[in-house]
């Protein structure tokens, strides 16, 4: 839960090694890019997993703000407000068959 002043970020399992195992971290920023910059300062390496070198969100990652995919809106320039919830959703391939089907 957020305190209403910060932005709550859901961290998927594969990125939790950057956040010391935290599944949810708080951040600030008026745009998605700004939020990610702030997070990267606290959790170095996180941003690179989500964004390309030019700052655009990678094509196998989706960022959702309050349940809406920013790819359908303004992408990394999508505005944020305190209290928003940001989800980072990577493509996962696992089906646990252990081998190829």
């Amino acid at each position: 839960m957020t305190d209403g002043q910060t932005i709550s970020v859901l961290v998927p399992t594969p990125l939790r090694r950057f956040t010391a195992g935290a599944a949810r971290v708080d951040g600030t920023g008026t745009k998605v890019a700004e939020l990610l910059d702030g997070l990267d300062a606290r959790y170095p390496g996180l941003r690179k997993r989500i964004c390309e070198g030019d700052g655009r969100i990678r094509r196998f990652v989706n960022v959702f703000v309050n349940g809406n995919n920013v790819r359908e809106g303004d992408g990394e320039a999508t505005p944020l407000r305190p209290g928003d919830e940001v989800g980072i959703i990577p493509a996962m391939a696992g089906g646990a068959s252990g081998r190829r089907a």
Binding site: P12, P14, I50, V61, P90, A91, A93
Partner: peptide, 11 residues
Amino acid sequence: TDVACAIPALA
């Protein structure tokens, strides 16, 4: 192209 096994790309 088979680029990964059971791991999400970000790992």
